[in-house]
Design a binder for these strands. Structure first.
Length: 210
DNA sequence: TCTACGATTTACT
DNA sequence: GTAAATCGTAGAA
């Protein structure tokens, strides 16, 4: 009999390992499309499918908060190893959820820009009062944070082992094409603002902008 | 300390 | 289509 706590956790089988996240943001941003972002909120399980992402690729990327190796209170989370959450407030109003990628001290991250609600729609609607159309509930980084009740308290959250917010593998292997486009809202990023580092599922009606 | 502004959303005209 | 909302962070002083 093994001592308790050493059994492999069955819940973790459907998860991605740290290795999966400890790669270039550009790779991870594509590989997580079609997989699940799950939020457990007072006993309710919200399941969504990731349909749109953006990659922010470390110290050389002028669009990245950590470009030039800027290491501040806000960017600290990006220096964690891949698999942690980086959450921050934009425009004083909206939270953005990122997944930290790459090895420790290499500050890459993938911004989740849009998801498709699959389960827990009732809870999502409760979190998004006044929004009528289903696709308007989660088709933007700030919108999906509201819908899944994600705020700064989830900054640096462990998405590999955590129970409240995590990614789950889609057991089906959905077939879709990936569109590459310019990242949104980073006009200050010089030559990097035109990089096609925004990725989304072509057929999805849930992406933020076409 | 002080100031400018942002990985956006919403409600207007 | 345009503009207001709203506040923590970054960088300068």
């Amino acid at each position: 009999m093994e001592p308790s706590g050493t059994f492999p956790d069955p819940m973790l089988k459907s998860r991605f390992s740290s290795d999966f996240f400890e790669r270039d943001a550009l790779i991870v941003s594509q590989d997580i499309l079609g997989h699940y972002l799950v939020r457990e909120l007072n006993g309710c399980k919200i399941v969504t499918m990731i349909v749109e992402t953006e990659a922010y690729c470390g110290v050389t990327d002028l669009g990245c908060h950590a470009s030039g190796n800027r290491r501040t209170k806000r960017t600290e989370a990006m220096f964690l190893p891949g698999g942690y959450a980086y959450v921050y407030l934009v425009y004083g109003l909206n939270y953005c959820l990122n997944i930290v990628t790459e090895k420790k001290d290499n500050p890459h991250a993938v911004l989740i820009r849009a998801v498709e609600p699959l389960k827990g729609l009732e809870m999502i609607r409760k979190n998004r009062p006044g929004i009528k159309k289903t696709c308007d509930l989660t088709n933007g980084p700030g919108k999906l944070s509201k819908a899944l009740d994600i705020d700064i308290s989830l900054n640096k959250y462990d998405l590999v082992k955590g129970r409240e917010l995590y990614l789950e593998k889609n057991p089906e292997n959905p077939d879709f094409s990936i569109i590459s486009a310019k990242r949104i809202g980073i006009d200050y990023a010089g030559e990097y603002k035109d990089k096609l580092w925004r990725k989304y599922i072509k057929e999805s009606p849930f992406v933020s902008k076409k």
